[in-house]
Amino acid sequence: MTMTPAAVALHGVSRTFGRGPSAVTAVDDVTLDFPRGGWTAVMGPSGSGKSTLLHCAAGLERVDTGRVLLGSTDLTSAGDAELTTLRRTRIGFVFQSFNLIGALTAEQNVALPLRLAGKRPSRSVVRATLDAVGLADRARHKPRELSGGQQQRVAIARAMVTRPEVLFADEPTGALDSTAARTVLDLLRAMADAGQSIVMVTHDPGAAARADSVVFLRDGRVVDRLAGADARGVADRLAAWER
């Protein structure tokens, strides 16, 4: 354990959907730190609550009990306006389905968070961010003119343009072929090596093995944690918990 405070910390977080006998507890009393400057993968069988955990950690989903801290900011007591500001400045998102705005070009999509924050992004900043994901020559293309892997890289550029404290990624390679997935994972690895905090949900042991550590979730609870394992090691551990 390092002495630096966690990028994101969950304290006794629970989240239940529905009521009565059909209620499902997606996250069950989870206490967990995501270290600053590190890449943490969250794994678990489908239905284990890993996406809900990510949404709670990012302030997208209300928690029933417990506290979520982003650095020293309490997300659980933040109002809508404060959460909006956090999304603009301190949090970045990448999702399985890219979620780019189809009406805007790659360049405009990347500039969007800055413009929503009321800034006038300089072209050079936007171009540099696109260049960092290897898409400087695709700036004027609309999402539908790009391949899946390219769209995901635009989404990463959009998330990174605000220089967020934490990048949340939900199955970022889930919709990509293995070559495109490797490009995206290489990108994330380079970002983590440069000091970026990343929290990533995945079901792919190969993707999880690229992270610094892996957290295993089952039935909404953290059941295991693994550091520095290879894909084989992650897969074996996952198989053990799925049994």
Binding site: T84, N99, I101
Partner: peptide, 15 residues
């Protein structure tokens, strides 16, 4: 979905 996306990347209700 489009409008939610705008909120996701930092759009406020007013925007």
């Amino acid at each position: 979905r489009d409008l939610a996306l705008l909120r996701l990347v930092g759009g406020s209700r007013r925007q």
